[in-house]
Structures are given as structure tokens and as C-alpha cells.
């Protein structure tokens, strides 16, 4: 075995894979959140639909998206491998175990939280990602007046796989800027009108908050990052940004659509 394979098959190395994939997924969350903030706009989903097209067609983003799928798979598979080894390390458990006396609840339940998140990711991707790629989405046409950008004419176009493609052009005769795009926005709006989807999404975001409360700072520790000067910064970001703000804003999206759109 080479030095690299040996390193990655050790208990420290397997955790290194968990850390690198996990932190990459954290980074993705920021981008995903910022993009999805466009759902809060009242523009019949124009910005969101244009953004969806960009994210699925811009080559550098596509490369990153494959990295993302790989990260999810590796994170889950290695979690399983590590958990199996860890349970083999203590086959006979304790009759009385007071974990709460020495560790946080999240840190002891990363596997359960991660499983909830994996189920959520499968549901989430089949709802939107698979739908967008292969689902036969309806199209939508936005005609924005060049003289008055406030004036937008929206036409819904039913699904027509052979003829409709994404297009963006200026119609000089009509004096409008035309955008034709797959209407992912309507799929999101329809789904978030179903109460139990909203509940599922909110539960998943709570689970993500707890998962990242331990996961974010733990990822840095696994890399060996630990210093009095910047450990508090990592802990602060892990708590406020990754386990409170990001999950809260994500959870706000289905709630907002359900109650106000």
C-alpha cells in the first residue's frame, strides 16, 4: 500500500474524508442558500428560473455539482464504515451510560441526524433535481418591456419536449426582452403548498442545524485545525451561521410559500 492509501484507511484518515466532504457540503449550503433567496422575490419566478438554468448548464458549476454528488455519497458511505468499526470497538455496552454528563447531544447522535438528512436529500433531489432534468417541466415566457422594466408579461407554456428550449433574446419590434425557461418555480410553489412537505422540510432543517452544530467545528478538528486564536471563530460560525441562520432561512422558504404566496 502506498502512503496515501495507508493514510486514508487509518481511523484518522477515514475521518479526514468525512471532514473534507462535510466541509465542502457546508460551503455548498452557502451558495445554495444565496441562490434560493430568489424564491422570496415577487417576479413570478423569473430570477429563480434563470438561475436554475444557469446552475444546470454553466460548465464550471457542472463540474462542481459532480463533486457535490460524490461528496454526499462518500460522506454517507464512510459514515457507515466508521460507525460499523466503532460499534465493533465496543460490542458489550454499558448498562448505565451518562453521555449527557460529558458530551453534547448532537455529537452523540450524528448518525441519526445524518440519516434524516440523507432521506431528506433523496426526497429533495427527486422533487426538484430529477424533475428539472427529466421531469418534463412546463415552460414559462417572460416579456419584459425595454421602456418600463416594471412591466412584465408572463405566459405559461405547457410542456413540449421537442420544441421548447431555454432562450433569452431582445425582441426589437415588440420592444421587449424575452426569456423562455423551464418553470421550476411553479414546481417549488406547488410542492410547498402541501403541508406535510413543509413539515418534512422544517424537520430536516432542524436536523441539519443539530448536525452542523457538531459537524462544522468537528470537521476542522479532524483536519488538525485547533488554536486558541481561531477556534472561537470556528465555533462561533458553526453555531450561528451553520446551525442557526442557514437552517432557519432554508426552513423559512417552505413556510413563506405556504403562508404568504
Amino acid at each position: 500500500m502506498s502512503s496515501f492509501t495507508k493514510a486514508f484507511s487509518s481511523t484518522l484518515g477515514k475521518k479526514l474524508i468525512m471532514s473534507l466532504t462535510g466541509l465542502f457540503l457546508c460551503l455548498f449550503l452557502i451558495v445554495h442558500l444565496l441562490g434560493n433567496l430568489q424564491l422570496f422575490k415577487h417576479d413570478d419566478g423569473m430570477a429563480f428560473n434563470v438561475y436554475s438554468h444557469f446552475m444546470t448548464h454553466f460548465p464550471p458549476i457542472k463540474i462542481v455539482s459532480y463533486l457535490l454528488y460524490l461528496s454526499i455519497v462518500f460522506h454517507a458511505v464512510y459514515a457507515l464504515i466508521i460507525t460499523i468499526r466503532n460499534s465493533k470497538a465496543r460490542k458489550v455496552g454499558y448498562a448505565v451510560y451518562k453521555g449527557s454528563a460529558n458530551s453534547t447531544w448532537s455529537s452523540r447522535n450524528m448518525g441519526i441526524l445524518g440519516t434524516i438528512l440523507l432521506i431528506f436529500i433523496v426526497v429533495h433531489m427527486s422533487n426538484f433535481w430529477a424533475e428539472y432534468h427529466w421531469g418534463g417541466l412546463p415552460f414559462i415566457k417572460y416579456e419584459t418591456s425595454l421602456n418600463n422594466p416594471e412591466e412584465v408579461k408572463v405566459t405559461k407554456l405547457p410542456y413540449n419536449g421537442n420544441e421548447l428550449v431555454y432562450s433569452q433574446y431582445v425582441d426589437t419590434q415588440a420592444g421587449t426582452e424575452v426569456v423562455v425557461a423551464k418553470d421550476l418555480n411553479i414546481i417549488v410553489m406547488d410542492l410547498f403548498k402541501i403541508w406535510w412537505y413543509v413539515v418534512l422540510y422544517v424537520i430536516a432543517m432542524i436536523a441539519m442545524g443539530f448536525h452542523l452544530y457538531h459537524g462544522f467545528q468537528s470537521g476542522f478538528q479532524t483536519l488538525g485545525f485547533d488554536h486558541k486564536k481561531y477556534k472561537p471563530v470556528i465555533d462561533f460560525l458553526g453555531l450561528w451561521v451553520f446551525s442557526i441562520i442557514i437552517p432557519a432561512v432554508f426552513a423559512a422558504m417552505p413556510l413563506y410559500v405556504f403562508f404568504f404566496k
Binding site: 466503532n86 465493533k88 460529558n102 453534547t104
Partner: peptide, 9 residues
């Protein structure tokens, strides 16, 4: 022995 998962226990 198992893997360290930084629980801090």
C-alpha cells in the same frame, strides 16, 4: 479502538 468523532467526552 474506534475512531475519534470529537465528542469531547
Amino acid at each position: 479502538f474506534g475512531s475519534c468523532t470529537n465528542t469531547g467526552a
